[in-house]
Design a protein around this nucleic acid. Structure first.
Ligand SMILES: [Zn+2]
Ligand SMILES: [Zn+2]
Ligand SMILES: [Zn+2]
Ligand SMILES: [Zn+2]
Lengths: 166, 166
DNA sequence: CTATTGATGTTATACTATAACATAACATTG
DNA sequence: CAATGTTATGTTATAGTATAACATCAATAG
């Protein structure tokens, strides 16, 4: 499959595909961690599964509640797992929501942009290299060397736009 | 003075100009609030002054401590003032830092981008309409209608870049 | 096996933000 | 001015987010 510069996820995922979408994310994570020689432990795997199961930006304490159903868990438990998953590029943190979301293409290095629908609360991840370059270029005009970008966009996704302002 | 699409502030402000820079921000705020028929009360004005005095992204509880030196103050005191100032476009909130900064050109409608130096912790505000349009256009490619943008860029400002990685 | 390292458990605490209700200041108007 | 409605502030409590510090456990490596 040819990959375009701009990829999106989550808005596109139908409810029916969702089990597959979780399984696929976990399989990719297993593979990447094996390749990298890092340990996707049961706990970390479980947290990643929960992140994908929610299928929308989810807070650390929400994950904690869900995690408690399979054993004891305290805040550091979930934050440590999330730190690992972020380091491995398997989840992203959304600064404007204090929430986490599974990365939809963790196999590729990318700077991501996030589209947050204010109506249905769903999220899509872009990896628009052109946009990312434009951001870096804009910073460079004032002599600033960009290293990390946080681009989070709030608005209406297509389905919600069709349904009207509601 | 001709204004270009991309404006920057804060990195450019020398320490010597800083008193003037605070006074000017307060004067502009007074004028804008008068024009709009909203009340820049003593408390709100004081909070805005503190935001500018710090001259870098500053947390609500830092402001609270500073505010306590002129009377009683609790968290809601400072958060309410900040809410007002944000609504009037006089300060911006930085989602990635949980911090606030004075807007460097509150007289004009704009979507801002923020450059955060990881070394000196200073911040510059851009208002690059071209970039803002590029962000909106990128969202539109997947049918998303952008309404609010959060663009926060971490890296090295020019002076810090010259001084080396440190 | 044992030393070393990395991962998890556990408790406490720091930091960020808002809810809820009481009081005070300000504005309108009769 | 007095009565009233409205906006702003004071005050207390609590919700929500994240990390420090230290103990224990599990997985390698020698
Ligand atoms: Zn991603
Ligand atoms: Zn939507
Ligand atoms: Zn601004
Ligand atoms: Zn710097």
């Amino acid at each position: 499959m040819l990959e375009t510069a701009t990829q999106s996820a989550s808005f596109a995922c139908k409810r029916d595909d969702h089990e597959h979408c979780i399984a696929s994310a976990l399989a990719t994570a297993e593979r990447l961690c094996a390749e990298r020689g890092v340990r996707l432990t049961r706990l970390r795997r479980k947290v990643l599964e929960l992140v994908w199961s929610n299928h929308r930006p989810v807070g650390a304490y929400e994950l904690l509640e869900q995690l408690k159903s399979c054993g004891p868990a305290a805040p550091p438990t979930v934050y440590r797992a999330l730190d690992f998953l972020q380091t491995q590029g398997l989840v992203h943190r959304l600064a404007s929501l204090n929430a986490f979301i599974g990365c939809s293409h963790p196999q590729a290095e990318h700077t991501a942009q996030f589209l947050i629908c204010r109506r249905c609360r769903n999220l899509a991840e872009l990896a628009d290299d052109g946009l990312s370059n434009a951001v870096a270029a804009s910073a460079r005009t004032v002599g600033f060397q960009a290293e990390e970008q946080m681009v989070e966009i709030v608005g209406l996704c297509e389905p919600c736009r069709r349904k009207g302002e509601g």
